[in-house]
Design a protein around this nucleic acid. Structure first.
Lengths: 138, 138
DNA sequence: GTATTTGCAAATACTTTGCAAAACC
DNA sequence: GGTTTTGCAAAGTATTTGCAAATAC
């Protein structure tokens, strides 16, 4: 298991600033390469390695979130607060789920499992409103 | 988005049989390469590609489950029935969570989101009993 | 001034794929 | 017998890393 030490002081470079700005603008959950493309419009010389390094760093210090929806790549969320996600199995879209956090789940699982629970995440899957109306005749 | 067609008839080859047997034996959730190693003890000439192909095929026809815990690789579960998981952030261990399914979550999310919800999954994170006792002095 | 960060390119990790031979029903 | 599956090896995709030069504070 890897456990990141976080001793270094983070400097606010231009690249890092633009990555954060772009992430905070979007309503969806971009992949590293989406972020690279977004940032490249502002900083044409930015490198993909820098984007990866920053996304990793920022998520390990909880400024952003790294998300995993079972795809081959990770996605990122400029909102560091815990919230649930919902994804469309037809078009791949991922939205924030408009559901309140269920803190009681942690206590329940802690009692039942013997683990010391730190957090939980719920991901919902289904068909989004757009895909539902697209497939009217289907 | 990719949508697997499942028209072919699956044949029960020796490789496929051993993969299923080995998967059903273990209490943990092995990666493809764990499965490869397990199967190799019974069928020394099996190839990694065959293991990947079968794990993919078997999970797409819901004989097994493909799981994702945000690691760089997928894990597999010989139990196809929906259940929740709990993972230790210290040692990486992943257990089945001894929690009943919460079917009501689907209805709640369906109302709130406008999606047609098909399923949900809860993953808990925390520190497992073993790691808790290991770190007595820490 | 010095430690952090960058761009570049090469390396790595995991998974998928093309193909001819073998196995299944 | 015809289709599915296999083993092998090569290719593909996402991510990480080493290093010298540039930058932040």
């Amino acid at each position: 298991m890897k456990e990141k030490k976080n001793k270094k002081i983070l400097r606010m470079t231009n690249q890092r600033k633009v990555i954060l700005e772009e992430l905070s603008k979007v309503y969806f959950h971009p992949t590293a390469s989406d972020v690279y493309e977004m940032v490249r419009k502002k900083l044409p010389n930015v490198s993909l390695g820098t984007v990866y390094r920053n996304l990793e760093l920022l998520s390990s210090c909880r400024t952003i979130q790294k998300l995993d929806f079972g795809e081959s790549h990770k996605r990122f969320d400029g909102n560091p607060d815990p919230h649930y996600h919902i994804n469309c199995t037809r078009c791949g879209r991922v939205d924030d789920a408009p559901i309140e956090l269920k803190a009681e789940l942690d206590q329940e699982a802690e009692k039942a499992s013997g683990y010391q629970i730190a957090s939980h995440h719920i991901s919902y899957s289904g068909i989004c409103p757009d895909c539902m109306s697209d497939s009217t005749g289907q």
